[in-house]
């Protein structure tokens, strides 16, 4: 397996608040990788650093062979073509319809005729499990689950190699969350994506994540497959997996 993302010794500070203290992890091609941790543990911040929305104070982040701290303009533009991002609240452009949201990158970055773009957009919309009439709706007219799906369709529009998901199942009901997890798994298998997801949904960790890292106390306290991480004696891990919610899961197995 090839390494697609390598984070090493990243330090992040907001004012006097140290968020990451020499955080290191790596993501391999084709896997679903989870970033886990309690609220305020800096998962989303780390994700934002990987997708070039923020710069860490020190340390290096390498994505698809590009070192982000001294990346050239052209490489950054190329890198942004290689990934799709699903934001926590969807972040669909509210003045555009779902179809326009999904087709945005295709319209801007390719020379495809409008009719082909329209077909691709409709195909992606069906691929994420939205009804076809959703294409003409505005984001304000969608339910929470539909916003996530539309946003996923937008992230997938250009067939990215990397897919970043920021808490994809938050705000969904258990059935919707389960369906969304299965959708991500299916898309990964179909399209050969590498998926990096920030989550604190234990169900997602149990069912679809291949490997994950647990952030806590400003560091990565465990990284690996579920059976490896769960044996780590660290108190935070104990709380996570052997607390009331975790125990229920562990008792029933995967």
């Amino acid at each position: 397996m090839k390494e697609v993302i390598r984070v090493s010794d990243v330090v992040t500070r907001f004012g006097s608040n140290l968020v990451h203290d020499r955080v290191s992890l790596s993501v391999e091609e084709g896997e679903i990788y989870g970033l886990m941790g309690g609220s305020g543990s800096g998962k989303s911040t780390l994700l934002r650093e990987i997708i070039m929305l923020m710069r860490p104070e020190s340390g290096s982040i390498v994505v698809l062979g590009k070192e982000l701290s001294n990346i050239t303009y052209a490489d950054a533009a190329w890198l942004r073509q290689q990934w799709g991002v699903l934001f926590q609240s969807g972040a669909l452009y509210s003045s555009l319809t779902v179809a326009q949201n999904v087709g945005m990158k295709l319209r801007e970055y390719t020379d495809l005729p409008d009719s082909v773009i329209e077909e691709i957009v409709h195909m992606k919309i069906r691929m994420v499990g939205l009804p076809e009439h959703a294409a003409e709706l505005y984001p304000a007219e969608l339910s929470g689950g539909m916003v996530k799906r539309a946003s996923l369709a937008r992230a997938l529009a250009m067939d990215p190699r990397l897919l970043f998901l920021d808490e994809p199942t938050s705000g969904l009901d258990p059935i919707g969350a389960e369906a969304f997890d299965q959708l991500i798994l299916k898309l990964r298998n179909m399209l050969g994506l590498t998926v990096i997801m920030v989550t604190h949904d234990l169900d997602s960790i149990w069912t679809i994540v291949d490997r994950f890292a647990v952030l806590g106390e400003r560091k990565v306290i465990a990284e690996g497959r579920l059976d490896e991480v769960i044996e780590t004696p660290h108190p935070i891990i104990r709380k996570f997996f052997w607390g009331a919610r975790g125990r229920l899961r562990s008792a029933h197995g995967q």
Binding site: L112, P113, V116, E119, I120, D159
Partner: peptide, 11 residues
Amino acid sequence: MDSAGMMLFLH
């Protein structure tokens, strides 16, 4: 080939 290429062909 990616899905855009395939769709172009199908179109």
